[in-house]
Design a protein around this nucleic acid. Structure first.
Length: 333
DNA sequence: AATGGCACCAACCGCGATGTG
DNA sequence: ACACATCGCGGTTGGTGCCAT
């Protein structure tokens, strides 16, 4: 009921389009527009169903389609938007001029999904995978880290462990915030849920930014508030209608400036900025989709999106310890 | 040269959403 | 409010080319 017969109609051609068919379709649409897709094939002299014509036009023949390989910037955009929107290919395509949803979907399935899996991330949640096989890259990275640490003075090891602990806490806070958003907590300045309170307490237990290398030298919102004392569960969409995550909000608002010579931690949840010109060097967005954002994310959240990058190459230094922490075990339970 | 496995991607299919009378 | 037509989306399939054996 309500369904129109389409390509199963007798005598209609299926399969690859010939150049002659393409030409007929293009010429007709240029002259008359597509109008009713169902009526188009007959009018254009094509032995195809309307659906097939529409697909051929929107995915291949449209004049504004950009063909060729995806640029690293486009790849970043897809990864970021997918972490927010999931498999909403048409929504993602609206942010990539000239690219079709079909093309993006294919690119995701053939390239990006594999890339994330190889890096040890769940392609659906963009978080470190928690199953045994997926954890192998991280375990290997951990082993490498321990090898390096064995060669370092104990003071440096202590500093590194302290850094790892802070990163773990931030990720745990992120996890708690997302849990509370998914549970529908909505009181902004009056956090009532256990997870909200736990987030705040945990955040408050962290050393002041000046005391930690990766949160150095300042970590606060433009209005001077600390990130998690603001409304925790107010939901907004930014000017381009993409809901942003707490992490992205946090990432943008905190202008981390690691000391000269400190390594850029590609596995962390932060943006790292050059001390010389203040340009972003690396960042990572391992968050699943959520609409939980705070007030401050509205104005410039789009910038956070465009500056992020899934850094390849060196394995993350800290995650092996992070994803073995209780929150991540708890998450899959 | 023949074959099998794999990656890629255009095209198809089914379904829900939306439009229309 | 309802029935039907049409559109658009996301998942899947199948053809093609490349590469290793």
């Amino acid at each position: 009921m309500g369904r129109s017969p389409c390509c199963d109609e007798n005598g209609l051609k299926k399969g690859p389009w010939t150049p002659e068919e393409d030409q007929k379709l293009v010429e007709y649409i240029h002259k008359h527009g597509h109008g009713s897709w169902r009526a188009l094939p007959k009018l254009a002299g094509l032995n195809r169903c309307g659906k097939s014509c529409r697909l051929r036009w929107t995915n291949y023949l449209r004049p504004d389609i950009k063909r060729g390989k995806f640029s690293p910037e486009e790849e970043d955009t897809i990864l970021n938007l997918h972490s927010i929107l999931g498999n909403k290919w048409s929504a993602i395509a609206t942010h990539l001029p000239g690219r079709t949803d079909n093309e993006i979907k294919n690119f995701w399935n053939t390239h990006l999904k594999k890339k994330l899996l190889q890096m040890g991330f769940d392609p659906m949640t963009h978080r470190p995978r928690t199953d045994l096989f997926a954890s192998l890259p991280h375990l290997i990275a951990l082993a490498n880290l321990r090898e390096v640490m064995d060669q370092q003075p104990w003071e440096e090891q202590a500093v590194r462990l302290q850094e790892a602990l802070q990163v773990a806490k931030v990720q745990y806070i992120q996890y708690l915030l997302q849990s509370s958003s998914m549970n529908g907590c909505s009181s902004s300045n009056n956090p009532s849920s256990y997870t909200d309170m736990e987030s705040i307490n945990l955040f408050n237990s962290m050393p002041s930014p000046k005391e930690t290398m990766f949160l150095n030298p300042s970590c606060q919102f433009e209005n001077g508030n600390t990130p998690f004392s603001l409304g925790l569960s107010q939901s907004h969409t930014v000017n381009d209608q993409i809901p942003f995550t707490p992490l992205q909000d946090f990432q943008f608002q905190c202008n981390f400036q690691p000391p000269l010579g400190s390594e850029v931690n590609q596995g962390s949840s932060y943006s790292m900025f050059s001390q010389e010109d203040n340009t972003p060097k690396s960042s990572f967005l391992p968050t699943p989709p959520t609409t939980l954002v705070t007030d401050n994310s509205i104005s410039n959240a789009g910038d956070a999106c465009s500056t992020s990058s899934y850094g390849g190459g060196a394995p993350p230094s800290f995650w092996p310890e992070l994803f073995l922490e209780e929150p991540f075990i708890h998450e899959i339970a």
